[in-house]
Nucleic acid binder design. Structure first.
Lengths: 191, 191
DNA sequence: CGAGTTCTTGAACCCGAGGTCAAAAATCAG
DNA sequence: CTGATTTTTGACCTCGGGTTCAAGAACTCG
């Protein structure tokens, strides 16, 4: 009973995510969100409570999506090195091909709010941990498949890859494609 | 002639830099700057024109300082690998020992404003280029000193190190010291 | 000392950010 | 249809952000 919602909260969160991603948390106003979602400010507050809570949902969606894409991509056939290279190249291409250099929402968030927003910081940390798990699993699979040295410390390598990826996505805001591809090759030399 | 300034613009810029560094650009208000510098808002505007211009000076100071510290540190005796490791460890310690996780002002800036503020983006790019020059020079010195393989591509390695450093400083917001030290070791394995 | 100049400062200004609300609209049970 | 319930919406409110300004203070020159 009661009047039915005339929007899908999930798609509103997705649209909000895009806006936060592009403009950052502080620079996204309720008016921006209303325009981006096509839902009036009042309705957004009625449904989500506050800008901060909507952001939390957007960040969570981002993490879930990123995790799924990564998992799916790394599951493809081939060697670990080639798979991971292709994944890093894909991310660089996505970053560079967008109309505006927006990087990674998780990193942008920790840059903007890190140290001053417990919850956001922890959410980003969880995403990073998840990425590291996925990289670790992919490297271990490579070891079983025989395309990665058995004595390599998979966890350490995964941690290193996550660091490289983080660095790359920041560098993608100021460097060109060729340079970034070069960094990928250098970083993967040890695999 | 005229009434003399009763503050040193340079130290005000330095204090403003600290504030921007800790809170980010958008979250630093003129009131914050007045409090941090001990100079009334009106005087700040009289002297610097706008928040944005003061920020530009702060960012420039940051770049100059970072460049000097890096140059000085990498000039110390020892092998390239040890020198660079010590430098990365130093930065991690500085990031971790602060009362609040603030990372690198340049990266924070490009995360917050990248793609939407030409001047800031370019300023950060210049700093990154400068860091790469310094790393390159240090590696080439290592090659002359005989502690780095002569066939290593110094420029590519420097680019890679800058990426790693960037990643590390973001990771320093969510990971602990031991983990970060581990990443440093992995990253330097190829040197 | 006054005139001219430059700096200082709090008060005041405008606007937009973030959020609240009252009234209207849409649904369902009886 | 009535009432209970839930959602929608723009109008409205408050507050603080970024900036301007008018008045005064501190200096130099003649």
């Amino acid at each position: 009973m009661g009047r039915p919602k005339n929007f899908e909260p999930d798609v509103v969160v997705a649209q909000a995510m895009q806006t936060f991603w592009t403009k950052g948390y502080a620079d996204t106003s309720p008016a921006d969100l209303a325009e981006a979602t096509g839902v009036a400010k009042g309705s957004l507050y009625h449904c989500f409570g506050s800008k901060r809570e909507l952001f939390a949902k957007a960040l969570e969606l981002y993490g879930r999506t990123a995790s799924e894409v990564t998992e799916e991509f790394l599951a493809r056939p081939g060697t670990a090195k080639d798979g991971i290279r292709a994944y890093l190249v894909l991310l660089m291409d996505m970053d560079l091909d967008g109309p505006v250099q927006r990087g990674c929402l998780a990193q942008n968030t920790v840059s903007e709010l890190g140290g001053r927003d417990e919850e956001a910081t922890r959410a980003v940390h969880r995403m990073e941990q998840r990425m590291i798990e996925l990289f670790t699993a992919r490297i271990e699979r490579g070891q079983r498949d025989g395309d990665v040295a058995k004595d390599l410390d998979a966890k350490a390598q995964a941690l290193f890859l996550q660091t490289t990826l983080t660095g790359l996505r920041v560098m993608a805001k100021t460097f060109d494609r060729k340079t970034l591809y070069g960094v990928i090759d250098t970083a993967l030399a040890g695999l």
